[in-house]
Amino acid sequence: MARVVVDVMLKPEILDPQGKAVHGAFGRLGFDGVADVRQGKRFEITLDGDATEERVAEIRKAADTLLANPVIEDYTLHVEGDQ
């Protein structure tokens, strides 16, 4: 069974209050030297069979319509094992 991974991040120009909160906690815990933290989402999608071109194209369509909102987010997609 193949696995497709979709990583979704807020676009760079969109404020990320959650990342900012994590960044603040870094400082309080003494983890210094951190310039910025951005928080995203990772989806691990396990397919029934192989990651054929058609199946991956379907997952890409799902990412476009559901997993990411193109108004505020970018995503990357890869088949696990491919990289």
Binding site: L10, I14, L15, P17, Q18, K20, A21, N69, V71, I72
Partner: peptide
Amino acid sequence: LCESHLLPGALIKNDRR
């Protein structure tokens, strides 16, 4: 409505968390 594309734009977390 924004997610449905009936209206443009999006709503994200409040800037003051």
